[in-house]
Structures are given as C-alpha cells and as structure tokens.
Amino acid sequence: MDSTRWRSTHALALSAIAVGGILTATMPGTATAAPSGPDVSSWQHLDGRFIDWFAVRRSGHDFAMVKATEGLNYVNPYFIQDSLLMRAAGVARGTYHYAQPSLPPQSQAALYAATVLGQNGPLDLPPVLDMENAGGLDPARLINWTRRYLETIELLTGRTPIIYTNPNFWKTAMANTDEFVHYPLWIADYRGNDQPEVPGGWPTWTFWQTTDRGKVPGIAGGTDVNVYSGAQGDFARYAHISGLLGSS
C-alpha cells in the first residue's frame, strides 16, 4: 500500500482477463464490471500535487482506499484533503491503518479512529487494518495483537473492519490462522490470475488488489487498483450510498 508494502516478485499490471472475469449482477438480466478503485497514500501526491478525484470518478472508479495512519505517530498529511475531495467527487471512501505490531494495538486503533472521525457517514466503507508487517512478533503474539486491534476498532467505529493482507504474509507470519474469517478480506495478489489466492480459511474475498502498477486518470504515477467482489452485498449499501453510483 506504500513504500513498505509487500511487493510480489510476480507483480503484473491488471490483465484484461482479470478485468473481464470479475463481473457482478447489479440489475435483473444485467451484468456490469465490478466496482473498482485505487488505494493511495502520500506517495501518490508527487511533488505535493493534488489528486483529481473528479477525474478518478469520471474514469469509472467507484471507491478509493486512503492511508490514514501508521503506528502511533504518523498521520497521512494528505488524508483530510483527499477525504474532502473524494466526497465532493462522489467517490466512496475506505481508510486504512498500517499496523506496527511492535507497538500497542489499542493505542493505534485510538489514533486511527480519532483521525478518520468515523466510518459511518455517506460514502464511507468500513475501516481497514493493513497487515503486512509482523513487527518482530511470532505468530501467536501477532494473532493476539490483531485480535485486540480489531476488537478495539470495531468498538470505536461501530463497523466490522476489513483485513488487508497478502497470501504469503498470512500463511507465514499469521500461521495461516482461520480465526478471523468473520472479518471481510482485502487480498493483494498481483499474479494476473482470474481469482486471487485466499489464505486463512476465508470462504471468499471482498476486495482484491490486482496490481500495484495501475494507471488511474487524476493520479500522478502508478497506483494500486482494486475490485469489489460483491461478497458483502450491494456496494451502494456497503458504502452508505443512496443512488449516487448508478447501477454500481
């Protein structure tokens, strides 16, 4: 998700097969491309430039995930700017916290919750925990850390959080635990397959980060691109939208 995120040795641009293969029925007898969107951090603000969220929306993207916080002392300096402009453009907003498990989970959850100021308004997707750093913890302690963070953020925001990870991290650092299958999964898998690898006993994925080298109008340079599977039901309801995304 940023310069520290996992990079697959087989990272590929989003293939036409993957795009065409992920369809969701949104109206009787009608199938349209699944809701899609980038995820961004300060790295997408090259030279301090704004992201043109209106261009992002015009290009067909329904949502975006924005890095809010990391650890105990980092707040994305562009978070408020992006949040306001996304809402103005009608782009549904997801926000994420990059976990630093060497630091207390409850305090990190409190920083995140205070920064995002709620995830229950119009155009808000649930909160996300970005799990790709073990912080020196063994699997048992990392699983415990994750449980405590998720329970705290659910209490603070009132929504069931999403877990972001990649198959290799989950199978090794998290010992491929199936303890968290009741949380929606956002999986990073850049191999260009029709479907991503789903670890940890999850029956399916909710969001799939298909590439970290996407090109999205309105965003300078490369960016991650994601799709929504429909696993949590109608996207408009999941993102607290009322008729803003058309047939999405």
Rank of each mutant, 00 (worst) to 15 (best):
Q100T: 12
T160C: 10
G233F: 11
A173I: 02
L117E: 10
R213T: 13
R159F: 08
P101R: 01
G218P: 04
G200S: 09
L84T: 11
D52H: 05
S107E: 15
A31T: 12
M174T: 09
P105W: 00
L142N: 10
L23K: 14
D212W: 01
P104W: 07
F54E: 13
D82G: 07
T32A: 11
L156E: 08
M65C: 10
P126F: 05
P217V: 08
A88E: 14
V227H: 10
W202T: 03
G230W: 05
Y149E: 03
Y98P: 06
A109V: 02
Y149L: 11
D212S: 14
G21M: 07
P38S: 08
T204M: 07
V19G: 13
G233K: 10
F180C: 07
F50I: 00
Y164I: 00
Y164G: 00
M86N: 08
L155Y: 11
Y96D: 04
D124T: 04
I17N: 12
G136D: 09
I162C: 05
W186T: 01
G214F: 02
Y228L: 11
R191H: 14
D47V: 02
P105F: 00
Q44P: 05
W205A: 04
G158N: 06
M131E: 08
Y96F: 13
D39W: 04
G121W: 00
A34T: 13
P217Q: 09
G90T: 02
S229L: 10
A173K: 07
A175L: 04
T115G: 02
N168R: 11
L150M: 11
M27C: 14
F235H: 03
M86Y: 08
N144Y: 05
